[in-house]
Simulated scan of single mutants.
Amino acid sequence: MRPRRVVSAVPAVLLVAGCQGGHGDGAPAGGTTAAPAVSAEASAQVLDAYVRRYNKAVTAGDTTAWRALGADAIDATAEAALRRGGGRPPRLGAISLRNPVMYVPRLRGLPRWFAVSALERRGRAERPIFAVFAEETARSGWRLASQVYFTGRPPRIATDAQGYAEAVDPGSAASATAPAALPAAHAAYLDRGDEHALHAGAADREWRQAEARQEKQLRAHGVIVSGRSAPTGYPIYALRTTDGGAIVTYSLRRTTTYTAAGSGDVTAVPADVRAYLHGRTGHRVTATWVWRAVAYLPVRGAASVLIEDLDLASARVS
């Protein structure tokens, strides 16, 4: 069956899903039989509601709308953004989403989720995004679980005869590495440069280089830097690709401690950490960032990070 176009407030929605079945907006996915995570109409409503809430948050400074946007890794950094902004969401222009393409899997029960690629327009600028929306419980509503900006085209996502995408069990051993192992593999690269199980992306390499420069600069200020990366424990979302591999969306957490040695000055920490602390200082500052990443996991060989982003989640002084 051909993909279905849906008329909604989000223009030109292309749903990679069949025309029959699917849950209505807010209807729980019960039982043990796999069913489409969301209907065509409901998926368009999810995107429309997200755009409305986001625009209300960033143009009107609505903190309630801001807090209602995200789940998982997005939610983990939402409060930090408010704190850095003096209690207001980031002051950004309104967005619209053009030509969204939905990747809707068949799932058993809750949580439900689906992925979407689209062009995000802000003013005259457009950027491609890849996002996952999730409904964790029957009462939680649909929220943005992950969003990253990308360049180029990821491997093609496979669909069944009705046009639905195929969800991959995070614990599946169909590939050399299970999707569930990718956050730890990514953390191993950030900590040690280990690429045995995962080929890092350009942003990872730039981050490691920048962190090495920062550590050198901070040592000159009498500050010792130590850090550790680890999986967040948030859900991992994986979809089958046409070559039998998978596109995997996951997250990880990086915690860095800045300790003043002798007359060291811990005010010389990254700008986003200083903004979060609003001038507070002490002997030690501990900051945590959350990474959102999308990787390609082939049938054979190591996974490759395709796109990623990170935001500050918290900071504290001791």
Score class of each variant (00 low, 15 high):
residue 1 M to Q: 11
residue 2 R to T: 14
residue 4 R to G: 15
residue 6 V to E: 04
residue 7 V to Y: 13
residue 9 A to F: 08
residue 10 V to I: 13
residue 11 P to V: 06
residue 12 A to G: 13
residue 12 A to M: 12
residue 16 V to R: 12
residue 19 C to D: 14
residue 20 Q to T: 14
residue 21 G to K: 09
residue 23 H to V: 05
residue 34 A to N: 02
residue 36 P to T: 11
residue 38 V to Y: 13
residue 40 A to T: 06
residue 44 A to D: 06
residue 45 Q to S: 15
residue 45 Q to R: 15
residue 47 L to N: 05
residue 48 D to S: 15
residue 50 Y to I: 03
residue 51 V to C: 07
residue 52 R to K: 14
residue 54 Y to V: 10
residue 55 N to P: 05
residue 56 K to Y: 11
residue 57 A to R: 02
residue 58 V to T: 10
residue 58 V to E: 04
residue 59 T to Y: 10
residue 60 A to P: 01
residue 61 G to D: 06
residue 62 D to P: 07
residue 62 D to W: 09
residue 66 W to T: 06
residue 68 A to R: 08
residue 69 L to R: 07
residue 71 A to D: 09
residue 71 A to Q: 08
residue 72 D to H: 12
residue 75 D to Y: 10
residue 78 A to Q: 09
residue 82 L to F: 07
residue 82 L to D: 07
residue 89 P to M: 03
residue 90 P to D: 13
residue 90 P to H: 14
residue 91 R to D: 10
residue 94 A to V: 11
residue 96 S to A: 15
residue 99 N to C: 07
residue 102 M to S: 11
residue 109 G to A: 05
residue 115 A to N: 01
residue 119 L to K: 01
residue 123 G to S: 07
residue 124 R to C: 04
residue 127 R to K: 12
residue 128 P to S: 02
residue 129 I to E: 04
residue 129 I to W: 08
residue 130 F to Y: 15
residue 132 V to C: 06
residue 132 V to P: 00
residue 135 E to G: 07
residue 135 E to Y: 08
residue 135 E to I: 08
residue 139 R to Q: 14
residue 151 T to R: 00
residue 151 T to L: 00
residue 155 P to C: 06
residue 155 P to S: 09
residue 159 T to E: 10
residue 166 E to V: 13
residue 168 V to L: 04
residue 173 A to R: 11
residue 175 S to F: 00
residue 177 T to Q: 04
residue 182 L to I: 02
residue 184 A to C: 02
residue 186 H to L: 14
residue 186 H to E: 12
residue 193 G to N: 12
residue 195 E to W: 08
residue 197 A to V: 12
residue 197 A to S: 15
residue 200 A to H: 15
residue 202 A to Y: 09
residue 203 A to Q: 14
residue 207 W to C: 01
residue 216 K to E: 12
residue 219 R to G: 12
residue 221 H to F: 14
residue 222 G to I: 08
residue 223 V to Y: 03
residue 224 I to T: 15
residue 224 I to W: 10
residue 225 V to Y: 06
residue 228 R to F: 09
residue 231 P to K: 05
residue 234 Y to R: 03
residue 235 P to T: 09
residue 237 Y to C: 00
residue 239 L to C: 02
residue 239 L to I: 03
residue 240 R to W: 02
residue 242 T to H: 01
residue 248 V to H: 02
residue 250 Y to W: 14
residue 252 L to G: 10
residue 258 Y to K: 02
residue 265 D to I: 07
residue 265 D to Y: 08
residue 266 V to T: 14
residue 268 A to L: 03
residue 269 V to K: 03
residue 273 V to A: 01
residue 275 A to Q: 09
residue 276 Y to D: 04
residue 277 L to R: 00
residue 278 H to Y: 10
residue 283 H to R: 15
residue 285 V to C: 00
residue 296 Y to A: 09
residue 297 L to I: 04
residue 303 A to S: 06
residue 304 S to H: 00
residue 304 S to T: 04
residue 308 E to D: 14
residue 309 D to S: 12
residue 312 L to R: 01
